[in-house]
Nucleic acid binder design. Structure first.
Length: 537
RNA sequence: GCGCUUGUAGCUCAGUGGAUAGAGCGUUUGGUUGCGGUCCAAAAGGUCGCAGGUCCGAUUCCUGCCAAGCGCACCA
């Protein structure tokens, strides 16, 4: 609908130029956008302001010329506002038609095909299998999971992937920690649990082979017992694939093959007995080592193997979500992808740290000290829906302050209840409608002229482009924000407009039709967010 | 020293090259013989970190500065 108006306005300007009313100038991008304030109608454009200078005509006069040429028709009402906006108010039929569209397509409203034919590899969390997941993993996990849902909604084929770092030094550190020798680094209760489960005691003098073996077994145990269980039961995230650094990448020789590809392209060199990739050719600050002076692979070599694996499995678009403590790796990882010949889109999202605060003081978390706050603990404290919604509603760029002391109170104040209550309220209306033998079928939608109803139409109309926007920008936090806005509109409408009014069955039917569309979109929004849409609370 | 991110209401956070910068919580004041008040309505509360620049117009873009977080391995 917006593009329709953009085209019309562009054509009008061209006409005005042809007839000499406007001087010739290069046509800028004509943008028609949703108004910020609905009192100005649905759409607005600032072309008259933007073109005023090149047209050498004051904005208001220019707007008048454009509007006069646009004429009047049934597509909408056009008005001019200071200092030169052109505002468009849609006709009733354009608004109400969204109801039948939504009711007809159900949860598929907002689906699109823009991603059709594109395979997306979406890697997120990828926490080391050396201990339970902490709050930062939660933030990235919910983000990646919801992003996958939105991508699928707009037509992408998505693989949600978890890369398990079970092939390098972390495993040795874990081995030492479980054996509690001099090189132990991890502490905390879970280490004791692992020891007990695997029947391992103190072995201060274990040799390297033994340490590695114990580390591998422990890593596998941690992955299965802690991480997957948390993903499944606490976070409700279903990954499509877990890629093991050790068995899927290293043992299959992918790092070596990646290195060979780099070599064939002349992108490698030896220096001080180590072997480097020219990542600086692709914008990195410095070249990165693939092999150490002793001939061992670096972690980066494994990353290159992982990248090659994704490319060979047919990824057309790559997404990677990392914690802020890994932002320094962005340019080298992109360099690796490009060096391997990947030319598709590659988005790396960085999530800022979650700081824990209690009684106004920051709690420093450390896996070594074993004082991390785990996702399990958080979910047990506030519940899945609250934890998920709370993390998702904030932009990834926000340096979150998570006040543990307020966690439980926050759970009562969390807007997720506001949104869920809106859904429960809608469900309640339908229960009542059934009792009264009323439905929204064959309703006369022209009766829906209340301003609060118009506000709801507006939100419903915006939903499809919101989904596309999020899939392309990764601005997942807009989804909870949208849910809150829609719930807000609904509650406000509910206070002013009685839906089931036995004295006015025609209006009741029309409002039931509207409200059923709202329920569908609200439920679909919550589905994408991954939060339940309760019938009752 | 260099790099990334951030600085918006008392607090937690949205938002934007333009029309009166928003929400929730907190504070104050109203509203219900109800389709569930887990709600609605209203008020108070802001030099959008500071200083320059670009622009018809900057909280938004650019530069510098200040402050906070995180990085800067042949560790993973």
């Amino acid at each position: 609908m917006k593009t329709h108006w953009e085209d019309r306005i562009r054509n009008v300007i061209i006409e005005l130029q042809k007839e000499g009313t406007l001087p010739s100038f290069d046509m800028p991008e004509i943008r028609v956008e949703w108004t910020r304030d609905e009192r100005n109608g649905e759409f607005a454009t600032n072309v008259a302001l933007a073109l005023s200078k090149s047209a050498k005509i004051p904005p208001m006069e220019l707007a008048k010329l454009i509007v006069a040429k646009l004429g009047t028709d049934s597509d909408g009402t056009i008005e001019i506002a200071m200092p030169g906006y052109i505002n468009i108010t849609l006709p009733q039929t354009a608004l109400t038609s969204v109801i039948s569209e939504i009711v007809g397509s159900g949860g598929h409203y907002g689906d699109s095909l823009i991603g059709e034919g594109t395979n997306v590899n979406n890697e997120f969390i990828s926490a080391n299998p050396t201990g339970p997941m902490h709050l930062g993993n939660g933030r990235g996990g919910f983000f990646g999971d919801t992003l996958s849902s939105v991508l699928r909604k707009v037509g992408y084929s998505v693989t949600s992937e978890y890369y398990v770092n079970d092939g390098g030094g972390q495993v040795l550190k874990l081995g030492h920690s479980v054996l509690r020798d001099a090189e132990a680094v991890y502490g905390g209760e879970y280490i004791d649990e692992v020891r007990k489960a695997l029947s391992i005691g103190d072995e201060p003098n274990a040799d390297d082979t033994r340490v590695r073996k114990v580390g591998e077994v422990a890593a596998s145990f941690v992955l299965e017992t802690y991480i997957k269980k948390t993903l499944d039961e606490k976070m409700r995230i279903a990954f499509d694939s877990f890629v093991s650094e050790r068995t899927d990448i290293i043992e299959k020789g992918l790092p070596e093959r990646a290195i060979a590809i780099f070599g064939d392209k002349g992108l490698t060199y030896e220096q001080d007995e180590a072997f480097f990739l020219r990542t600086t050719d692709f914008g990195d600050d410095k070249d990165r080592a693939l092999l150490k002076a002793d001939g061992e692979r670096t972690y980066f070599a494994s990353d290159c193997g992982n990248m090659l694996s994704k490319i060979e499995r047919g990824a057309d678009r790559l997404i990677l979500t990392l914690g802020a403590d890994h932002h320094g790796y962005v340019s080298r990882i992109i360099a690796a992808a490009r060096a391997l010949g990947f030319s598709g889109r590659f988005d790396i999202f960085i999530l800022q740290m979650v700081r824990l605060v209690k009684d106004g003081e920051e709690i420093r978390m450390s896996k070594r000290a074993g004082n991390v706050v785990t996702i399990d603990e958080l979910v047990d404290l506030v519940g899945h829906d609250v934890a998920r919604f709370f993390f998702l509603m904030l932009s990834l760029d926000t340096h979150m302050n998570f006040d543990l002391g307020l966690a439980e109170e926050r759970s009562e104040k969390n807007p997720v209840y506001y949104v869920q209550y809106a859904h429960a309220r809608l469900s309640s209306i339908f229960r009542k409608a059934e009792e009264a033998d009323l439905s929204g079928d064959d309703a006369d939608l022209s009766l829906l002229i209340h301003p609060k109803e118009r506000g709801l139409f507006r939100e419903l109309l915006m939903f499809p482009e919101l989904c596309v926007d999020i899939a392309e920008s990764g601005a997942v936090h807009k989804l909870p924000q949208y849910a809150i806005r829609l719930a807000d509109r609904l509650h406000s409408f509910y206070a002013d407009c009685r839906v089931i009014d036995e004295g006015d069955p025609d209006l009741s039917k029309a409002r039931l039709a509207l409200v059923s569309a709202v329920r569908i979109v609200l439920a679909e929004t919550l589905r994408l967010i991954g939060v339940s849409a309760p019938e009752k609370m």
